[in-house]
Amino acid sequence: MTQPATRRTVLATGAVALAAPCVGCGGNDKSSSASGSSDKKELAKTGDIPEGGGKVFKERKIVVTQPKKGDFKAFSAVCTHRGCTVNQVADGTIDCPCHGSRFHIADGSVAHGPATRPLPAETIKVEGNSIRLA
């Protein structure tokens, strides 16, 4: 015959039940960095980025440019005007399709409005032929 649940038993059981789904939810970043977190994966090969041009990585919201041979830059692909994602790199600029803003590939500064603020720089690491987020 089982004993009726006491208030202490109910509270303890409820606390365990509430805590159980959170197991593994903590902020331990060691597992993601040890396994090569997705932020550190290769964006591109250096040969994928044309000299004097660049490439938009829409899914990562990053644009990587090569203003001059061997000089790689990265910027947010989110236009500072209204938050659209830029869609191409052409003729020395990073272009936004929404309202026509264009940004210089060398430093992300505004080449043509309506945007008034530059694209924020992103940090990349070039190792050998590999370009990764730093």
Score class of each variant (00 low, 15 high):
N28P: 12
R82A: 11
A90P: 03
C98S: 03
F75L: 13
G14H: 03
G113M: 12
T123P: 00
V23R: 14
V10K: 09
R8G: 00
N129V: 12
Q66C: 14
V56H: 01
V56L: 01
A77W: 04
T6Q: 00
D48G: 07
N87A: 11
S31A: 09
L11W: 08
G52Q: 12
T85Y: 03
Q3N: 13
D29L: 14
V89Y: 00
V63C: 02
A44W: 02
H99N: 05
D95W: 05
A77I: 09
E122Q: 09
K61I: 06
G26T: 08
A121P: 10
R117C: 09
F72V: 13
K45E: 06
K68G: 04
A19T: 15
T13Y: 02
K61G: 07
L133Q: 09
K73T: 01
G52P: 06
A44N: 10
H81F: 09
T85H: 07
R60F: 01
P50T: 11
A34E: 15
V78Y: 01
I105K: 05
G36H: 03
S37V: 11
A74S: 02
F75Y: 14
I49Y: 02
G36D: 01
V64A: 15
P118I: 07
E51M: 11
P120H: 06
T93Q: 08
V23A: 15
M1D: 05
T9C: 00
E51T: 13
D91S: 15
G52F: 05
E122G: 00
G14M: 12
T93R: 10
T2S: 09
G92K: 06
P114I: 04
R8W: 00
V10H: 03
E59F: 00
G24S: 10
I94H: 04
Q3G: 10
P114S: 11
V126W: 04
T46A: 05
A77R: 04
T46N: 05
G47Q: 13
R8K: 06
T46F: 04
R7N: 03
A106S: 15
E59I: 02
A17R: 09
K69H: 04
C84W: 09
G113R: 10
D39V: 15
V23L: 15
S109I: 04
H104E: 12
C84R: 11
E51Y: 01
G70T: 11
V16G: 00
G108S: 12
H81D: 10
R132C: 10
E51S: 12
K125C: 12
R7D: 04
G26M: 06
T116C: 05
E59R: 07
G70Q: 06
G108C: 06
D71N: 00
P120K: 13
S109K: 13
G36E: 02
K69S: 06
C79S: 09
D39K: 10
S76A: 15
R132Q: 12
T123R: 01
S109F: 03
